[in-house]
């Protein structure tokens, strides 16, 4: 897909729409658009975290495989959001699986080149990290609420 098209997609996406046009172009230069079918894995735990996913359409789930209990689906992430930040923190390895639940389209950025770009471009790095921090904070807060198990029957509360 030509860079201009990726740039246009990023211009519409809530995560990137307010970056400067030049910044979006730079990101588009590291990106391809990919489509995943239901059940395809976008991310596999333990592998190198070499990509950053901007979800354009569809629905993906963050999962963990437990040897004794099988797949545990923890949270879903939908169009308009982003997935994967292990590429920011050494040792750059995925900590969870991410699987498409529906047909999903994502802008997939090459994380090694993105890290280099952010090393060179402090302004873009600041903006992108601020945005990622908001995403991480929102997800942490949602995870905490989920942990509280607020709909549990009174008899089970505190167990």
């Amino acid at each position: 897909m030509p860079e201009t098209t990726v740039s246009e997609i990023l211009a519409q996406h809530p995560f990137t729409h307010d970056l400067d046009q030049e910044e979006r172009k730079a990101l588009a230069g590291l990106a391809t658009v990919r489509t995943y079918e239901p059940d395809d894995l976008l991310i596999r735990e333990g592998r190198a975290a070499d990509t950053f996913f901007v979800i354009v359409d569809g629905l993906v789930a963050i999962e963990m495989f437990l040897p004794d209990r099988g797949v545990r689906r923890l949270q879903t992430v939908e169009a308009g959001d982003v997935v994967g930040w292990s590429w920011i923190v050494p040792p750059y390895r995925w900590e969870f699986d991410v699987r498409a639940l529906a047909r999903t389209t994502a802008v997939v950025l090459d994380a090694a080149r993105l890290r280099e770009l952010l090393d060179r471009d402090e302004h873009l790095a600041t903006r992108l990290f601020q945005k990622l921090l908001l995403v991480v904070a929102a997800r942490l807060s949602a995870t905490r609420l989920q942990l509280l198990d607020i709909y549990a029957p009174p008899a089970e509360v505190g167990r």
């Binding site: 629905l59 789930a61 797949v71 689906r73 923890l74 949270q75 879903t76 939908e78 639940l101 949602a142």
Partner: peptide, 10 residues
């Protein structure tokens, strides 16, 4: 469980 294909989260 994985038979649910919808949203998971609060």
């Amino acid at each position: 469980d994985p038979t649910w294909r919808g949203n998971i989260g609060v």
